[in-house]
Computed example of a mutant assay.
Amino acid sequence: MNVPAIRTADVPLIAEDAPRCGRCGCRLSRYNSTAYCSGCTRHVGEDPPARCVVPPHVWHSELIRDALSCRDFGRLCRLIREIGSLRQEDMSRLTGLSQAFLSMLESGQRRLTSIDRIVVLLDGLSVPAELTCPMLQLSVDKNSAQLNAGY
């Protein structure tokens, strides 16, 4: 039996039809038969949690700035989570990248090389422009140096 191969580029980052918690919006397990995640089930009478955001103090960290300048997006995600007290699920909701992909990115099993995904990640995390411009400027400077050298 021949089964056509699926290219990884054709596989969506997050299943669009994945069930979501009716209170906080996190993805539910396919085995969950209720409308709420286990955390929200314990707190049904309370107000839903506020939309998660990356705390502003995170961007002042020299470690974060270093990870951005090195374009080490796995380390960047891990540091943002640790300094900002976020979960991978929170990062997934912010960026649109799956929790599994973020886990592999942080552990070094996967790399973020697609400019589209890099933009999605940085935009979802609301990285300040003054931190992303130097990173992008380095690429422009290298490219212009190569063009001037005849490469």
Rank of each mutant, 00 (worst) to 15 (best):
D72I: 05
L131Q: 03
H60D: 11
W59K: 00
H57E: 10
S85N: 15
Q88F: 11
L125H: 03
V58W: 02
R78K: 14
L63V: 10
L102G: 13
L102I: 14
R71K: 15
A67I: 04
M104P: 11
D90N: 14
R65M: 08
R110T: 05
R87I: 04
R78Q: 14
Q88T: 13
V119K: 04
H57Y: 11
V58I: 01
C133F: 11
H57C: 04
S61I: 02
A67D: 13
V120T: 14
L105G: 05
L125Y: 02
H57R: 12
E62I: 07
R111A: 10
D90C: 07
T132M: 05
S61E: 08
F101H: 08
R93L: 13
G74W: 09
P56C: 03
S107V: 03
L125K: 00
C133T: 14
P56S: 03
R75E: 15
V120C: 12
T95A: 05
S69I: 10
R110L: 08
H60G: 09
S69E: 14
E130P: 02
W59P: 00
S126A: 11
R111P: 02
F101N: 04
E62S: 11
L125T: 00
T95R: 08
S114C: 01
W59Y: 02
S126C: 10
L102N: 12
V58C: 05
T95N: 03
R75G: 12
D72E: 11
A100T: 14
R93Y: 05
